[in-house]
Amino acid sequence: MHEILDGGGVEVKMKFVLNGRAVSAELKGNERLMDLLWKLGIRSVKEGCSTGDCGTCNVLVDGRLVNSCMMLAVQARNKSVVTVEGISQNEELHPIQEALIEYTASQCGYCIPGIVVTAKYILEKYPQADENMVRQILIANICRCGGYTRIVEAIKSVIESSRR
């Protein structure tokens, strides 16, 4: 059955899985997934363009790479959402993050959480990706510092070492 969420103020409960843990959250109808994640203490998800162009708010929903600024929070009901907080667990960095440090790929750092999530998606979905493919997927992750070359090299190195 359908529920009705009142955007005027009444909050409604929703269940989903956040970084591997079942979460029950209260939200308003007009909340975006990004807004809900912030309310739940997730700080890696950044608001950049708010219109799906910059990739700074990218998260994985049921394994699919999406912009959390264009997805309504209710659309994540009963789904599994992964952010950087779920990629590096127990304070241990994921190889993607290690590589970004090794290649000094992060400058101001604002775009990096979105890039880490996008790289995770590439590793999982396109483990055979070549440089062209990596660049093609990263096309919608804007780095205003212009650090693209090192970002691409870092991700390439992770893909190569995961193949070994």
């Binding site: 059955m1 359908h2 529920e3 009705i4 969420l5 009142d6 955007g7 005027g8 308003k28 109808g29 007009n30 909340e31 975006r32 309504l72 209710v74 009901r77």
Partner: peptide, 11 residues
């Protein structure tokens, strides 16, 4: 800001 609205979620 995203305007306020009611949301329906039919299945």
């Amino acid at each position: 800001a995203v305007p306020s609205f009611d949301v329906y979620v039919p299945s």
